[in-house]
C-alpha cells in the first residue's frame, strides 16, 4: 500500500458509492437494486479501511466487520422479502410492484 496516497482510495470509494446510488436509481430489477445497495456498503468499507490505515488505528478495521455482519443480516431478511414478493406476483420488476395508490 506504500506509495498510493490516501486520496486515491477515497476517490475510488466515492466512485463506487456513486455507482451504487446510480444503480439503485436507474435499474428496475429488484435483485440488481439490492446489489447496488451492497456496492454502496462496500464502498463505505473501503473508506473505513483507507482512513484506518492512514491513521494507523485498528478501529476502522473493526467497523468494517460490523458493517459486514449487518449487511449479511440485511441480505437474509431482504432476500426473504424479495422471495415473498416473487411468490405473490411472479415478477421482480420494480415498476410492476406498484398496486398501492399514488
Amino acid at each position: 500500500m506504500n506509495g498510493v496516497p490516501l486520496s486515491w482510495y477515497l476517490v475510488l470509494s466515492a466512485i463506487l458509492f456513486s455507482l451504487g446510488v446510480a444503480g439503485f436509481l436507474f435499474r428496475r430489477n429488484i435483485i440488481t437494486i439490492f446489489m447496488s445497495i451492497e456496492l454502496m456498503l462496500n464502498a463505505v468499507n473501503l473508506t473505513f479501511i483507507a482512513f484506518s490505515y492512514d491513521l494507523r488505528q485498528v478501529n476502522g478495521h473493526i467497523f468494517t466487520f460490523f458493517v459486514m455482519v449487518v449487511a449479511a443480516a440485511e441480505a437474509a431478511v431482504g432476500l426473504a422479502i424479495i422471495l415473498t414478493v416473487y411468490k405473490n406476483r411472479g415478477t421482480l420488476n420494480a415498476d410492476d410492484v406498484n398496486s398501492l395508490r399514488f
Binding site: 445497495i37 431482504g78 422479502i81 415473498t84 414478493v85 410492484v97 398501492l100
Partner: peptide, 18 residues
C-alpha cells in the same frame, strides 16, 4: 400490499443506511 410495503421499506431503508 404487505409484500409491497415491506420491499419498499427495505430497499429505501437500506439505501438510507448507506
Amino acid at each position: 400490499r404487505n409484500n409491497e410495503s415491506a420491499i419498499k421499506y427495505f430497499l429505501l431503508g437500506s439505501f438510507a443506511t448507506g
